[in-house]
Design a protein around this nucleic acid. Structure first.
Lengths: 216, 216
DNA sequence: CGCTTCATTGAGATATGTCAATCAGAGTGG
DNA sequence: CCACTCTGATTGACATATCTCAATGAAGCG
């Protein structure tokens, strides 16, 4: 058992984000710029920092013993990741696309102002919501829930870019790439969404009601 | 944004567990005795307390809009539940069998000693582990993972009682009762477990290695 | 133009859901 | 004691959704 503040001090003894001090590394405002697929941290590493996404998206995943990748969550602007129970990373974090993140905080004293409990509870709530989505048997519903989740992150924009590949989505929803593609096709054929762009990752919502109906 | 300690004080203004002050209610050592299936709290209620299980087991679940029950977690001896992000319950908590729980803490000053962050992170880690189990496509593997989870809670005992019904297990693993029963039969036929008792809820592990192999 | 990558589509195999019947144990009442 | 019922678990037969394997399509790039 340990107290929150003790944990904090243990976690942030050293300046986080050192591995990113390359050409794509931290600028003087302490944000870190990442290219697509660049690793932020890996399983087994010492957990030195938590991060907040400033732009782009991050995937948090684990590798099963059988070598399958399971994506636990996607984090986009404003969301926090990297808060762990122990001092060792249990998962991997990578940029989905060109991304900017902020390690937080470098200063052990400043960290007291971060509400770690709130971050943990927010992530817990999301993990629980996802559990419900995963047990929805229908692949179409899972994909619909995913689109809904992505759409909610940009409530104002009529069209948005999902950024992640079909493979990412499949590993997130526990489906195969083919089933994900078929589900997107169904949503398109039912005039619920329109897909645009080279990689069909740009989504325009045509029928929010129908989408929402699928997620319930 | 709020600080942990502020949350604590808001959460515990009143003495928790008032609804349990019946014949099965709190004794003077503040533990609460519950019969099987007795409700601890329900969705929509004001969150007044967190709880620790002293004996028995508790199921935490949600009801989907379509009326399906999804069990988020089972909590057994020593485990904490009822810590929520907001002030309103988002799920239901019920005793699986005859159960004893301790509301914690009644005193706003004593609560400071509870490591809420640790509880939240423990629950988060469990929720994430479960995500991996849920996306294991094979029903047999999910049931094996469930048996493994139950067995780990009693590492010393050669035989243990699962307490929960096939229906509970199905709602936990995102399967049907029939598939759960078939999976248990397979585990029995492969001499991995032996099932005993009227309701076949008592499990004796015959081949831990084979069980573990299924969960990987 | 060939090559690569990512997405889509098709055909067949398989696991799980659905519906229905049966079984085992406990309790109840005659 | 025996028939009856009730509950929870199991088993069977069939339908179907998703996975698997394979082919095709579309866009970018050397």
């Amino acid at each position: 058992m340990f107290q929150s503040h003790v944990v904090v001090k243990q976690k942030f003894l050293t300046f986080p984000g050192l591995r990113h001090a390359g050409p794509c590394g931290a600028s003087k405002d302490s944000t870190i710029k990442l290219e697509a697929d660049q690793t932020i941290y890996s399983e087994g590493e010492h957990a030195l920092a938590i991060y907040q996404v400033e732009a782009g998206a991050v995937r948090i995943y684990r590798l099963t013993a059988s070598g399958h990748r399971h994506i636990l969550s996607f984090c986009s602007k404003g969301e926090w990741f990297g808060l762990e129970k122990g001092h060792v990373r249990t998962d991997f974090a990578e940029a989905v696309c060109e991304t900017r993140i902020r390690p937080f905080p470098a200063d052990p004293d400043a960290v007291i102002s971060i509400d770690l409990l709130n971050i943990a509870l927010t992530n817990l709530a999301k993990a629980q919501d996802r559990q419900l989505v995963m047990t929805e048997q229908s692949a179409l519903k899972r994909v619909a829930a995913f689109v809904q989740e992505m759409a909610e992150r940009r409530p104002e924009e009529p069209e948005f870019d999902m950024m992640m590949s079909r493979s990412d989505i499949a590993d997130y929803l526990g489906l195969t790439i083919e089933t994900v593609a078929r589900s997107f096709t169904k949503l398109r054929d039912r005039h619920i969404i329109r897909l645009n762009g080279k990689l069909q990752r740009s989504v325009r919502l045509l029928d929010r009601g129908a989408l929402r109906a699928l997620t319930i």
